[in-house]
Write a protein that binds this DNA or RNA. Structure first.
Length: 287
DNA sequence: CTCAGCTCCTGCGGGC
DNA sequence: TGCCCGCAGGAGCTGA
């Protein structure tokens, strides 16, 4: 489900609920999701205070008073619900629009003050892990990540160099978390559309200038999406991974058959499949 | 090393 | 109504 903007939205929702609060109880309802949970997960969480909530790429990192960091990955369908003390009282109660989804509530944390956090993941591609905070950047899931797209290490010169010699389509290159960390299918489609670059173009055959033009496009689309996610958070006060209002602003993703919205372009958004995943683009203005 | 294809899992919507 | 198919926002693993 979530790409960087959705994960950041979840982090921003969780931070005020978790930071400074002690985890009073951890209920782990299955052995793991994509991978087995770390040994003694419940015991290692119980009694710990969350110092700070961070994000790296599509991972949320909770630094705990024990000196360990809890790493969350939401996979395709992961979400986190925040239930206040005065919300639905019993585990498994109707806290979803579709109550049967509650059967995928895999982990539940009860915090000091009574707030409950529920990690729900229908498809179970998500993950939780614990590792020592000082070495968290060396965690196998984090060690090979490229720069943050909203950070200083991501600029035109970097991206042009990262693309050099690559024979893979630029669509696949931007999805490669080692090149830039946090993009997914939606925002790659949107950034390519904004820059007029075909998803089929080989990364290594883009001019340096065109490669560099992707940087502000990526930064802008991510920033706009985070802002839209934040607005939906205020309304629903949930940190679940739903797309915020930004989904109504997609110009390419999911718009097959619709008119291209670029100024002066009379083309039509088309869906193709690249390495097993949908790409939406305008063959007229994206070359 | 690079790259394409497969895989994990469940639910939903469309066509018949 | 039921069945089958394709599709879904991720990303690690395998083998060429």
């Amino acid at each position: 489900m979530p790409e960087l903007p959705e994960v950041e939205t979840v982090r921003r929702g969780l931070a005020p609920a978790m930071e400074g609060k002690t985890i009073l109880r951890a209920e782990i309802r299955r052995d793991g999701l994509r991978w087995p949970f770390p040994p003694r997960l419940a015991e290692r969480l119980t009694g710990q205070r969350t110092l700070v909530m961070r994000r790296r790429a599509k991972y949320i990192l909770s630094d705990l008073s024990s000196g360990e960091t809890l790493l969350w990955h939401l996979g395709m369908s992961g979400r986190v619900l925040i239930l206040d003390g005065d919300g639905p009282a019993q585990p498994g109660s109707f806290h979803y629009a579709h109550p049967h989804l509650a059967k995928h509530d895999h982990v539940e944390l009860t915090l000091e003050g009574g707030t409950r956090l529920i990690f729900n993941d229908v498809r179970r591609f998500g993950a939780l892990d614990l590792a020592p905070t000082p070495r968290i950047d060396d965690h196998p899931l984090l060690a090979n990540l490229g720069p943050e797209p909203l950070g200083n290490g991501f600029d035109g010169a970097y991206l042009a160099a990262a693309f050099a010699g690559r024979n893979t389509p630029v669509k696949a290159a931007l999805l490669d978390q080692r090149i830039v960390a946090g993009l997914g299918n939606i925002y790659v489609c949107e950034a390519l559309h904004r820059t007029g670059i075909s998803p089929k173009r080989k990364a290594g055959r883009l001019s340096a200038a065109r490669a560099a033009s992707l940087v502000p496009a990526i930064r802008n689309v991510l920033t706009e999406a985070i802002e839209a996610g934040g607005s939906s958070l205020r309304d629903y006060r949930q940190a679940d991974g739903e797309l915020g209002y930004f989904q109504h602003r997609f110009q390419a993703y999911g718009r097959a058959g619709k008119a291209c919205t670029q100024d002066g372009c009379s083309g039509q958004i088309t869906r193709i499949v690249q390495s097993g995943r949908s790409s939406f683009y305008c063959p007229t203005c994206q070359r």
